[in-house]
């Protein structure tokens, strides 16, 4: 799949880095929400099935394989959270500029 939509990404703040930071913050907020939803599912299932209690969670210790799996997950997670940073680079690679976008507006409007 293609990740970056063709066309210069607009920025709104006087310092465009703030737009980038907001992208990261919102991606992070999204992932917290995803996590919360999954946790909620698990806890509700656990209670419904009488599987484990809050105490069991506190007492859990992951083994080496579990730790490796979690490391892998965190790598993908960071890729997702820092998506907007990669996008800036992809845009530069494709030489997309505000001028080239405005040229597209002019081209269809003339």
């Amino acid at each position: 799949m293609i990740r970056k939509a063709k066309g210069k990404r607009p920025t709104f703040f006087n310092d465009p880095q703030i737009d980038t930071v907001m992208g990261i913050v919102m991606a992070l907020a999204g992932e917290v929400s995803v996590l919360r939803e999954r946790l909620d599912t698990i806890e509700r299932l656990a209670v419904a099935k009488g599987l484990f209690t809050q105490h069991d969670i506190e007492a859990y210790r992951p083994d080496e394989a579990v730790m490796a799996e979690r490391e892998h997950w965190r790598t993908e997670y960071l890729e997702r959270v820092l998506r907007v940073v990669h996008q800036e680079l992809e845009e530069a690679d494709k030489s997309e500029t505000t001028e080239s976008y405005q040229a597209a507006v002019r081209a269809v409007s003339s």
Partner: peptide, 18 residues
């Protein structure tokens, strides 16, 4: 307006990504 704009643009990108 700047904050709303950056949030709206970000929501659009997150939508396609999701």
């Amino acid at each position: 307006y700047q904050m709303w704009s950056t949030l709206l643009r970000t929501s659009q990108e997150m939508m396609w990504d999701s």
